[in-house]
């Protein structure tokens, strides 16, 4: 009755047309996650992807699993109910910097502190893509966008600091374009015996190039235990159980380009039609 567990990447591709803008980093994340899923060893029908609203949130439509494209900012709450009612399922939340850190901040931190069996993937593109280019909670100070023509005034959130502050037990950052590292983060998140929050964050390291960033995601826990990790577009440090000391100190300046395994994100030639025009340097 249950699905054959010798699954391939193809098995996780839905019949839906993927509709991100050309050059968007979300394509790379989708491909990586689809490629990673067969390694989970979990039948397709026991996997659920839940998303909110935003660039990142069409993700469940493209996964041939159970899924819900819910509403703005509430995916962690919905996924919490799912995971509580059905501990047998592998529950993943796909979200973005606007969805997770702005409209849903409360649900995110409480999902993290509860240590529920969830994986959260946060695609951090540091911009509101779906609504066509307003600044987001992770946009750097001074960023010029449609809604901040004189530059953004606000201090940005550091997703990693936020997650650790909320007592997430697994937090990692990776890069959409670094498939090997992203896959490794997913693997570690799934192996983590508590909820994990992998963030896939595309910190706009370089300059105007930029693609739609991938936001961090919480990887759902293995069937019995949850974990969270962030994937971000630029990987920094070890994704494994970060400690407070591993966080970068908060400064008034935009975060430095990512350090760590590997080099900074390569500049992308393709650009997101929606976002890139607005992504002038901070």
């Amino acid at each position: 009755m249950s699905t054959d567990l010798t699954l391939t990447t193809k098995d996780f591709k839905s019949d839906q047309e993927v509709r991100w803008c050309p050059g968007c980093g979300d394509y790379a994340i989708l491909a990586t996650v689809q490629g990673f899923m067969p390694h989970l060893g979990i039948a397709r029908e026991n996997i659920v992807f839940v998303s909110g609203i935003g660039r990142s949130s069409r993700f469940p439509y493209d996964m041939n699993t159970y899924g819900m494209h819910s509403f703005h900012g509430r995916a962690p709450a919905i996924a919490t109910g799912l995971a509580c009612a059905r501990p047998d399922l592998s529950v993943w939340v796909v979200t973005g910097d606007g969805d997770a850190l702005s409209i849903r901040g409360n649900h995110l931190i409480h999902a993290l502190r509860r240590n529920i069996n969830l994986k959260i993937l946060l695609f951090n593109n540091q911009i509101y893509g779906l609504t066509k280019g307003q600044y987001s909670p992770t946009s750097e100070q001074g960023k010029v966008t449609k809604s901040t023509p004189m530059g953004a005034l606000d201090e940005p959130f550091r997703p990693l600091s936020l997650a650790i502050g909320a007592e997430a037990s697994f937090v990692a950052r990776t890069l959409d374009s670094d498939r090997r590292h992203l896959t490794d983060v997913l693997r570690q998140a799934v192996a983590h015996p508590t909820p994990a929050l992998p963030w896939s964050r595309s910190t706009r390291t370089a300059t105007s190039s930029t693609t739609a960033p991938s936001t961090p995601s919480r990887t759902p826990p293995p069937p019995t235990t949850p974990c969270c990790a962030w994937n971000t577009a630029s990987p920094t440090g070890s994704p494994r159980t970060p400690t407070r000391s591993s966080t970068t100190p908060r400064t008034r300046t935009p975060p430095p380009p990512s350090l760590s395994p590997g080099s900074a994100a390569p500049p992308r030639s393709a650009s997101c039609a929606t976002c890139s025009a607005l992504r002038t340097t901070g």
Binding site: S70, A77, I78, T80, G81, H107
Partner: peptide, 21 residues
Amino acid sequence: FQAEDEIAGIGAALGAAFSGS
């Protein structure tokens, strides 16, 4: 499930409904 707010309360219920409760 005592949620963090009203919205999460019904959100979790909706997730549970999807799962068959």
